[in-house]
Design a protein around this nucleic acid. Sequence first.
RNA 1: GUGAAUGUAGCUCAGUUGGCAGAGCACCAGGUUGUGGCCCUGGGGGCCGAGGGUUCAAGCCCCUUCAUUCACCCCA
Length: 409
Amino acid sequence: MSAIQKIKGFADMFPEDARAFTRMEDAAREVFTRYGFGELRIPVLERTELFAKGIGEDTDVVGKEMYTFTDRGDRSLTLRPEATAGALRACIEAGVVEPGKPSRYFAFGPMFRYERPQKGRMRQFHQIDAELLGSAEPQADVEVILMLQDYLSELGIGELSFELNSLGCRECRPNYRAALTAYFESLDASALCEDCRRRMKTNPLRVLDCKVPGCKALVADAPAIADHLCGGCRDHFSAVLSLVDRAGLKYTLNPRLVRGLDYYQRTTFEVTSGAIGAQTAVAGGGRYDGLVQLLGGPDAPGVGFACGMERLALLMDKQEAPRPDFFLAVTDERAVDAAVLLAHKLRTRGLAGECDYTSGSMKSRLRHAGRINAKKCYIIGPDEFDAGKVTVKDMEEGGQLSLDIAAFD
RNA sequence: GUGAAUGUAGCUCAGUUGGCAGAGCACCAGGUUGUGGCCCUGGGGGCCGAGGGUUCAAGCCCCUUCAUUCACCCCA
């Protein structure tokens, strides 16, 4: 046991699993391109302050989950725990954000959070991320939501539910927060669970999300955010809902849907599944007006989502390995070089397959060809080598024929 | 950070009150003198996660440690 092992919460992916990720990426490129989104590739490392500012100092992500270190130049750097902050930083830096002129980007890649791993949660995990910048219109929220839905159905994932909520804006959320705090403080100090008493101080909205039965009962009578939205937020949300309705998307309103990152405003949404362990969120997103400006850009609004690839993978069917066109078997030592050259010619013609580097028994080679599910087995043994021929056996029909190796030149 | 479960062959896992380390799959060879899948026979493979303790004797009991998994917390 002296071999070095991978570090906790990081995963190696072999082709069997990697194929699912390739499929997710291909489908994302296809679907998102239809919506006018272009691919963005940005670094995984950023200055720590970007996340501290963008995500919020009081969030769990920033408070205790970031991989932060000091580099050799004494700068504090952080492995990105989510995608939005970095994407906005890049767009601001490149000057592509302009209020009123929508720009659309998507990206995939690894994110890093220092948490205890469990089903559907890794320290290095992957997200597909989409950001629509520059539009404050409810139609933009709806297009982003519909794009996400299209994407998930393109992958053939069913049994998902969409949940929507509005968190209000900087004008009305403080009022709601105050009303909520007042409500909980009017109760017995022992009425809420221990965790919620802590949440009261850090983020009272989180109490809404508590699963403890006692808290749930109290939350049922708590003031609802819908009753505290300002006129602008109310109009925006009802426009979103009505358009989403007309597009035929089935969703549930979840007034307790509270997201973990401070930057969300107005529309928030989450796609959940009951089939991925204790975690339920497959994708989540919302509107983040004000974030671009907070990060030093123009006063431009934005909406986006992030989709967890490991969690999607749990919901996807296994991706079959591609079937090789050939296996090139060698049963005579002298034929190894000829075999490699022939295999090369076959590949030049667009065929896929592997080739022996050593000779072996006919039986073992054919068994291997069958096992990797090759369509044909090309065989060069002593007889073929002496005659300059290759035997081609059809692995399904069982028939075979003899061809001149020179014919492949 | 907290709690629980699990570490035995390449993989999935048995292993009784402590008494010679096993099965299935995979791999290799043979049954078939150049022909896969099905079947039969044989074979290679193990620091029983690591370290310490109890015992005539430990995979099994005790302590420590590491790793993995699931859950809490939180989130994708």
